[in-house]
């Protein structure tokens, strides 16, 4: 005979357990992991057989000096990144200028899809390294090779996403607009365009990510300035804190673009979507962690 028992879940935890439950909080885990990681890195480096691994403090000092424009590299971090961004912007603009018409054609006409599909797939799968090296061989050292690399690395993402978006325009909404006699302009403006938006976003996001990788590689092998080239400079100078420091700049920029630019933009564009935090919490949402059941014994009447 089993008993579920008499429990009160809302009992206050004794003070001794409060510290423990504080540590069990996910936010504590996050803080712990940062502190632990940096501390471990700093402490382990002196014992490594190589002196090519930088300590966090070395990296921090390097980054701080870079930000104050004190650097032995020929260009400051601001100059390098702004040059790279200009190349990225021009290349992406070209990618959209070429990719959007092609994508529309492929989405609207089946023969265009059959004609181009295999080449688009090859373009999607092509490592950006290949684009960078090809562009380097074709155009030599200068601005042209990085820009062409960006365009080549991004254009297939634009084409495939626009084509997919055109095919996904909800037919029942088009039929509804037709049934109510909505004008052609209004249909494009209010039905087709909004349903294409997510695909434009996907094109921009993936195209940008791939283009950025290609750009850095093109700058390494086919340029004499830009963020990628500076990384190569630190590599040749055997200054690993330079590489790690620049990597952190890259991550900061990536997070900035992802969170601030894309986050804001998509929240504004998709403001009509029901947001996640408006959903009411479900009563049975219990903690998946093993920490909680200690207070409530898992009773299994009828079995055990």
């Amino acid at each position: 005979m089993t008993t579920v028992g008499t429990f009160r879940t809302l009992a206050l935890s004794p003070p001794g357990r409060r510290v423990g439950s504080l540590l069990r909080h996910p936010r504590a885990a996050r803080v712990l992991s940062w502190v632990g990681f940096v501390a471990a890195w700093q402490l382990v480096v002196p014992f490594l057989p190589t002196d090519l691994v930088p300590t966090p403090s070395e990296v921090a000092v390097f980054m701080w000096n870079e930000l104050r424009m004190e650097t032995v590299a020929p260009h400051t971090v601001y100059e390098s990144f702004s040059l790279s961004f200009q190349r990225l912007g021009v290349g992406l603009f070209l990618a959209f200028a070429i990719g959007v018409p092609l994508g529309l054609l492929m989405g609207l006409r089946r023969w265009a899809d059959w004609f181009l599909h295999d080449f688009v797939v090859v373009g999607l799968a092509m490592p950006s390294l290949v684009w960078a090296l090809v562009a380097g061989m074709w155009f030599g050292f200068g601005d042209l090779a990085p820009v062409v690399t960006v365009t080549l690395a991004a254009v297939t993402f634009v084409v495939i996403n626009v084509a997919e978006g055109v095919r996904n325009v909800p037919k029942e909404l088009l039929d509804m607009s037709g049934a109510y006699g909505v004008s052609r302009y209004a249909t494009i403006r209010h039905v087709i365009f909004p349903s294409l938006m997510p695909f434009f976003f996907a094109a921009l996001r993936y195209g940008l990510a791939n283009a950025w990788k290609g750009l850095v590689l093109a700058e390494v092998w086919a340029s004499t300035e830009g963020a990628g080239w500076v990384i190569k400079f630190w590599y040749d100078a055997h200054r690993s804190q330079g590489i790690v420091g620049y990597a952190l700049f890259f991550i900061i920029v990536a997070i900035f673009i992802e969170r601030i630019v894309f986050g804001r933009l998509s929240r504004w564009v998709f403001r009509w979507r029901p947001s996640d935090d408006r959903r009411t919490p479900e009563p049975e949402a219990t903690d998946r962690d093993e920490a909680v059941p200690a207070a409530v014994p898992a009773a299994t009447p009828g079995r055990q």
Partner: peptide, 10 residues
Amino acid sequence: ESATRGTVDI
């Protein structure tokens, strides 16, 4: 699920 209070005997 477990009960907040009370007994179940099966």
